[in-house]
Simulated assay, not measured.
Amino acid sequence: MTSSGPDGKARVTVFMRPGCHLCDVAREVVSAVCADLGESFEEIDIDSDPQLLAAYGEEIPVTLVDGRRHDFWRVDPQRLRTALLGG
């Protein structure tokens, strides 16, 4: 039911951490948009990787689409939808 990018990975990546209320909201938005479009997403806990923590610790959640930075702090559902549709 979900599709992946050309390399077989999820098209959307969300860098987050447990207990983050903005991350919970982002998860809901990303999950809904990806479900509507038949896309997949993955969540990565930045606390488990010192490099990710250094890179994204102040901006989580951070969303990537096709490996490119898309949003941070908040995810706009229409903007995400447009990016996934190639707009």
Score class of each variant (00 low, 15 high):
2 T>W: 03
3 S>C: 06
3 S>R: 15
4 S>R: 07
6 P>I: 05
6 P>K: 10
6 P>C: 00
7 D>I: 02
8 G>D: 08
9 K>A: 14
10 A>L: 01
10 A>H: 04
11 R>F: 08
11 R>H: 13
12 V>R: 05
12 V>F: 12
12 V>N: 09
13 T>F: 02
14 V>T: 09
15 F>C: 05
16 M>V: 02
16 M>Q: 06
16 M>F: 08
18 P>L: 03
20 C>E: 02
21 H>C: 02
22 L>T: 04
22 L>E: 00
23 C>T: 03
24 D>F: 00
24 D>A: 06
25 V>A: 08
26 A>G: 03
27 R>Y: 07
28 E>A: 13
29 V>T: 14
30 V>A: 05
31 S>L: 03
31 S>D: 15
32 A>P: 01
32 A>C: 01
33 V>K: 07
35 A>W: 07
36 D>H: 13
37 L>P: 08
39 E>P: 09
39 E>M: 13
40 S>L: 05
41 F>W: 15
42 E>F: 02
44 I>V: 15
44 I>H: 08
44 I>L: 09
45 D>R: 10
46 I>Q: 01
47 D>H: 10
48 S>F: 03
49 D>V: 06
50 P>E: 07
50 P>T: 07
53 L>W: 06
53 L>T: 14
54 A>W: 07
56 Y>R: 03
56 Y>P: 04
56 Y>E: 09
58 E>Y: 12
60 I>M: 02
60 I>A: 00
60 I>P: 03
61 P>G: 05
61 P>I: 01
61 P>M: 04
64 L>T: 15
65 V>P: 07
66 D>I: 02
69 R>N: 06
69 R>M: 12
69 R>V: 05
70 H>P: 00
72 F>K: 02
72 F>P: 00
72 F>Q: 07
74 R>K: 07
75 V>W: 05
75 V>A: 00
76 D>G: 04
76 D>W: 03
76 D>M: 01
76 D>K: 02
76 D>R: 01
77 P>L: 06
77 P>Q: 05
78 Q>S: 07
78 Q>D: 15
79 R>L: 13
79 R>M: 12
80 L>K: 03
81 R>C: 00
81 R>F: 00
82 T>A: 14
82 T>V: 11
82 T>L: 15
82 T>E: 15
83 A>M: 12
84 L>E: 11
85 L>V: 11
86 G>I: 09
86 G>Q: 11
86 G>H: 12
